[in-house]
């Protein structure tokens, strides 16, 4: 009907399919070792965490919460009760896996995101190229990332981390860029006027000034990682998300609720920790 009907359908989906296949085949020599070694490493971390008696971890977290929040009892009590509840529900091992995934993807996101953010803040060209890519990364439905993740890294924790990286890194990049650009002109001038080199200006003035903003970005990244790690259970990432998924598949509201509430508890603890670390400095 439409006047554009004479144009045949453009084969975007075929092209992307082809590209993904090509990348998978061509770079399998990179992807395979990453999948194996990195997967082993993550399993190793999760296992070591699981080796530590739960009660010790719970107490350590509670004590840390007490100090991080400036010697207030709120978060400490919440952590204690919340983690004991997860343990009581028999989800401790799943919790350790989820935590490992969040920890490692967040660390990688920060390692990748902060330098990119710095690059953006220093170069208008870089900013104008990277910003739309970030928009793209954040608006694409998260599930879509699972597909190439599986193609590259098969199933398990590693593709979960990969998908989480794409989904959760943008806030760190954005906030790093913003934080550095917001440093007042006078302070930048002061740094310059006393003969700072570019890196002295960055490390001695700009990054310390931008720290609060960057930490806010990292907080967001960590929370997004957590949400992605749950979704990544669909491609076989172990942890609390898998409990939710299996409850969903069997329509069991009870176990689904228990796993869900465990994720919420973990989310609150992580969020308050990262926020207070920021404030404390």
């Amino acid at each position: 009907m439409l006047m554009f009907d004479f144009i045949p359908q453009i084969p975007i989906s075929e092209a992307v399919q082809w590209l993904t296949d090509w990348i998978t085949n061509t770079f399998s020599f990179i992807f395979n070792p990453i999948r194996n070694q990195f997967g082993d490493f993550m399993n190793w971390v999760a296992d070591r965490l699981y080796d530590i008696p739960a009660i010790i971890i719970i107490l350590l977290v509670a004590v840390a919460a007490f100090f991080v929040t400036g010697k207030k009892f709120g978060l400490a009590v919440f952590s204690l009760v919340g983690l004991l509840l997860i343990y009581n529900q028999g989800l401790w091992e799943e919790l350790m896996y989820t935590f490992t995934l969040v920890l490692i993807s967040s660390i990688l996101s920060v390692i990748i995101g902060v330098p990119i953010g710095i690059l953006m803040s220093k170069s208008k060209t870089a900013e104008s190229i990277i910003l739309p890519i970030l928009d793209f990364m954040q608006t694409m439905p998260a599930f879509v990332y699972l597909i190439p993740a599986v193609a590259f890294f098969s199933i398990g924790m590693v593709p979960g981390v990969f998908a989480s990286l794409i989904f959760a890194t943008p806030p760190t990049v954005r906030f790093t860029n913003l934080g550095i650009r917001q440093v007042s002109t006078e302070l930048v001038e002061a740094a310059e006027a006393f003969g700072s080199t570019g890196s002295q200006r960055l490390f001695k003035v700009e990054l310390p000034m931008a720290k609060g903003t960057i930490m806010a970005g990292i907080n967001q990244t960590v929370m997004l990682s957590l949400s992605m790690v749950v979704i990544a259970s669909m491609i076989g990432a172990p942890g609390l998300g898998r409990q939710v998924l299996s409850a969903l598949q069997r329509a069991q509201i009870g176990p689904g609720f228990v796993a869900g509430i465990s994720i919420v508890i973990l989310a609150i603890i992580i969020d308050r920790f990262t926020q207070n670390l920021n404030k404390g400095n």
């Binding site: 006078e186 302070l187 001038e189 002061a190 006027a193 006393f194 003035v205 310390p208 000034m209």
Partner: peptide, 9 residues
């Protein structure tokens, strides 16, 4: 240089 709004870190 000395700055109007001090420019202290």
């Amino acid at each position: 240089m000395v700055f109007q709004k001090f420019g202290l870190f």
